[in-house]
């Protein structure tokens, strides 16, 4: 690439063979993770809708399913599994860490004291 880049010039040409192969593979990965997410979501809804599953099992089960589904979203749909995402991982995981502490603290402080 030349030293002067015009960022408003339309990009021309095809991606390289290597990139095309990667994109084809990615398409497959993304479709598989989408099917998995549909399956996980349906399982979560079914375990609550069905009377056969006791709620003592269903509640931890759907929380686990939510955690799996979010991981799929972050690492496949949002590409956090790729190289060069160290800072991205640090930011999201610190955000989640503080969010978990916040949820626990608020639940206990408001919930236990008031109800």
């Amino acid at each position: 690439m030349s030293s002067h880049v015009d960022p408003s010039a339309p990009l021309q040409g095809e991606p390289t063979k290597n990139t095309q192969r990667k994109l084809k593979k990615e398409m497959r990965t993304q479709l598989v993770s989408f099917v998995l997410m549909i399956f996980i979501t349906s399982m979560a809804f079914l375990s609550i809708a069905s009377d056969a599953i006791p709620s003592g099992f269903a509640i931890p089960f759907i929380l686990l399913l939510a955690a799996i589904q979010v991981t799929l979203q972050l690492y496949f749909f949002m590409h956090m599994n790729e190289k060069g995402t160290a800072w991205v991982n640090i930011m999201i995981w610190s955000g989640l860490f503080i969010a978990v502490l916040t949820v626990a603290a608020l639940m206990l402080l408001i919930g236990v004291v008031k109800y």
Binding site: I92, A99, G111
Partner: peptide, 21 residues
């Protein structure tokens, strides 16, 4: 992504409030 990390905390506090109330 830095912004999204902050958004996580925003929604975390709303979830905590909801679960408490």
């Amino acid at each position: 992504w830095f912004f999204l990390g902050g958004e996580t905390v925003l929604f975390g506090s709303l979830f905590g409030t909801y679960l408490g109330l």
